[in-house]
């Protein structure tokens, strides 16, 4: 799995810093930008439709490491999909976001999953399925069970969130970060068995978009 360690850190003495690329994918107006905005600014407002992609960063100080998330928020309209492709390349994690009040958006999230499966090996990327707009439960078209069920069969992380009420927004990003770290450690362990860990791995090898 692609990992990035900042020069000058080592597992022994310091807490290592990892940089991960996380992409937000999903239909138009399911709340991708709103989730990112809530997560970054802890606020909610009407946002312009995303064009191309928007970029955010968030640093998490976890027990064992510092994690820098590079969040790539993509445009949702189907017509942008060919361009989106250029943005999700090289991602370490993807949030597939749908709107619980529009069934159609879950189907679209499934299509996104198929796209990702074409692009990545299963252990190359962490994928979370996120049902947004929990604040609108009265208009719900997708049950929690349905989302959960699908996530389980595909081995995805799953959570229902509300960018508006802030419900579980931090949690989903945190879950992704922890999962990323865990895989990092597993990988480091298996590498240790073979040889020493190369922490000086340059960005060049992993960033391709």
């Amino acid at each position: 799995m692609a990992q990035e360690a900042m020069p000058g850190t080592s597992l022994a003495g310091f807490r290592p810093t990892y940089i991960y690329k996380v992409v937000l994918l999903g239909s138009t107006s399911v709340g991708k930008t709103s989730l990112a905005y809530r997560y970054m600014k802890n606020d909610f407002k009407e946002l312009l439709p995303t064009v191309g992609c928007s970029f955010f960063t968030q640093t998490l100080n976890l027990d064992v490491a510092t994690v820098k998330l590079e969040i790539w928020d993509t445009a949702g309209q189907e017509k942008y999909q060919s361009v989106c492709h250029l943005y999700y390349r090289g991602a370490h994690a993807a949030l597939l976001i749908y709107d619980i009040t529009h069934k159609e958006t879950l189907n679209r999230a499934k299509l996104w999953l198929r796209e990702l499966e074409k692009e990545f090996l299963p252990d190359e990327i962490i994928i979370a399925l996120v049902g947004n707009k929990m604040d609108l439960t009265t208009e719900r078209e997708v049950t929690t069970e349905e989302g959960e069920q699908f996530a389980r069969t595909k081995g995805l992380l799953f959570m229902e969130t509300s960018a508006k009420s802030s419900h579980q927004v931090n949690d989903i990003f945190m879950a992704v970060a922890r999962e990323l770290l865990q895989r990092e450690q597993e990988k480091a362990l298996s590498q240790c068995e073979q040889s020493t860990v190369d922490l000086g791995e340059s960005r060049t090898s992993t960033r391709c978009c």
């Binding site: 064009v51 191309g52 361009v83 250029l86 943005y87 960005r203 060049t204 960033r207 978009c209």
Partner: peptide, 11 residues
Amino acid sequence: HEVKYLQFAFR
């Protein structure tokens, strides 16, 4: 710094 033009100039 591996910034690609498409990342900012698309918009």
